[in-house]
Design a protein around this nucleic acid. Structure first.
Lengths: 121, 121
DNA sequence: ACGATTGTCAAGTGACCACTTTAGTATGCG
DNA sequence: CGCATACTAAAGTGGTCACTTGACAATCGT
């Protein structure tokens, strides 16, 4: 019940350049919060907030080790957004294929009304 | 010079539920602006603005036909975000593989310092 | 034990942005 | 022509959110 893993939260989280940069850094290997903060011209507190956002939406996980919090990417989070994009891509592709086939198989050009619209028949 | 196609713009655009819904609707087939607006409890003007955002970042294209503007998904836009996510996913996967291999090939447990860190040696 | 790291919490602030309103332009239809 | 449809453009507004500050807790090194 801790993670929502919703598409909305994931996209919202990745909309922020700093958070995307954190995920990029983290996809190269685990890191502590201050390690994550180093490249930024930003307070440590701000980075902590970003980490919290990323964790709440399931894009990263973290565990406290001593006085450090070590963070790593959670593949499941990436999958959520990957699936969304992948589905749209395949739908658009299928849509274009259908259009291509239609154009190729109708030399006369007048058989039925030009249903260029949505998939319902 | 019209489209930026930057990752940042694409993610920012998709962070908005309404805009994601528009892309979803559009990945099922082309539609006019007012068709896109229909399901929303929102002014047409607002939808127009969303369409403009989606077009500027290269996620959709549109052409004016008569008094209608018909919109369709631009696959290239989806590819931009797909590539970003795909790269991170593969990096994380590779990272986990390396960790697994390391654990499997070290029964003694003390050969070199535990470099769980980034890829540099 | 003391000081220095490392992180956390809470409250405040400024900027951005989604949305509305208003007013206007262009196209289709009878 | 005249009226409705479909969009566009500009300005204003409220709410969200990234970031700061400041004060505090826990842990490490010496």
């Amino acid at each position: 019940m801790l993670n929502h893993h919703t598409i909305d939260e994931c996209f919202r989280a990745l909309a922020e350049p700093a958070r995307r940069a954190i995920v990029e850094r983290l996809s190269d290997g685990p890191a502590s919060v201050s390690q994550l903060a180093a490249p930024f011209d930003m307070t440590l507190a701000a980075v902590v907030q970003h980490v919290q956002v990323l964790e709440k939406c399931g894009l990263i996980r973290s565990e406290k080790i001593g006085r450090n919090r070590v963070c790593r990417v959670d593949p499941a989070g990436l999958d959520v957004v990957s699936n969304w994009v992948g589905l749209r891509r395949s739908m658009v592709e299928r849509q274009l294929d259908r259009l291509g086939a239609l154009l190729a198989s109708e030399p006369t050009g007048d058989e039925d009304p030009p249903e260029t619209e949505r998939t319902d028949p």
